[in-house]
Design a protein around this nucleic acid. Sequence first.
DNA 1: GCTAGCTGCTTCGGAAATACTAGCGGCCTC
DNA 2: GAGGCCGCTAGTATTTCCGAAGCAGCTAGC
Lengths: 118, 118
Amino acid sequence: MTESPESHTATVGERCARGDRGLVRAFSVLGKRWSGLVIGTLMNGPSGFRELSRAVGGVSDSVLSDRLSELCELGLATRRVEPGPPISVTYELTEAGYGLAPALQEIATWSDKFLVDD
Amino acid sequence: MTESPESHTATVGERCARGDRGLVRAFSVLGKRWSGLVIGTLMNGPSGFRELSRAVGGVSDSVLSDRLSELCELGLATRRVEPGPPISVTYELTEAGYGLAPALQEIATWSDKFLVDD
DNA sequence: GCTAGCTGCTTCGGAAATACTAGCGGCCTC
DNA sequence: GAGGCCGCTAGTATTTCCGAAGCAGCTAGC
C-alpha cells in the first residue's frame, strides 16, 4: 500500500468508521475527568496514592480514589498493598494500561503542535 | 538512536514526563464527556448538527451544542452557515482537529485490543 | 505519652456538568 | 394547516465532580 495523502486519509476515515465502537468504549474511560492524566502519570512507573495525587495535581482525593478504582476494575491498573509496617499501597498500570502509551504519545504531540499555551 | 525495548520504554517515559503540560491541555478537551466522540465522528467529514447528533448517538442537544462551540473556540472545528433557503449549518474539523487522527487511530486500536465488549 | 504529620481512603454537602425535553423560528411536504 | 425537519436555547432534573473533615494506621520529635 502506497503512502499517498489520499489513501492515508481514506484509511483514517475507514478506520474511524470501523472503530466507532472502539472509540465509544475508549472514551467511556478517557472522557471522564482526570482518567487520561492519571493513566499518563502512571506511565512513569508505579506510584502511591499521595504521590500520584501530587504528580497529577489538582485532583480531589475522592475523585482520584474513584478513578483508580475504575481503572483497576477495568484491568488497566493494579493496586498492591504491602502490609508493612508501615502499610503502603502502590498503583501500577497493567499491560493494557501501558498499551495506551502510543496513543498518549500521539495526543501529546498533537497538543504541543495545535493547542495554545494557557 | 537505537530502537531497543529499553530505550523505547525510556523514550515513552521521558516523552510523557515532558509532555505533561501537553497532556493536561489535551485532556482539558478530551477529558470532557462527548468531545472525543464528536471529534472522532467529524473525522468522517463535515456534518450538520442533527446528522452529527445521530452519528454520535446518545448526546443531548444542549451538550452537543456546548461541545461544538468549545471546539470552534479552540480552533479545532468550524461552523459554516449556508443562508439557504433552507438555512443549513455545517460543522467541519480544522487542520488542528484532523491532526488528532493518529491519536484517535491509536486509541481505537488500543480499545479493540484491551477493552472488553459491553 | 502526646502532638503533628504522613499515609489511603470514605463521607457528606454543595458546586458544576450533563441529561432531558419543551419550545422557538425557519423551512418543506402533504 | 398540520406535521416534520432543521439548529439551537432555556429550564429543570439528575449525575458527576469537588472540597474538606474525618477515620485508622503509622512515624518522628518533644
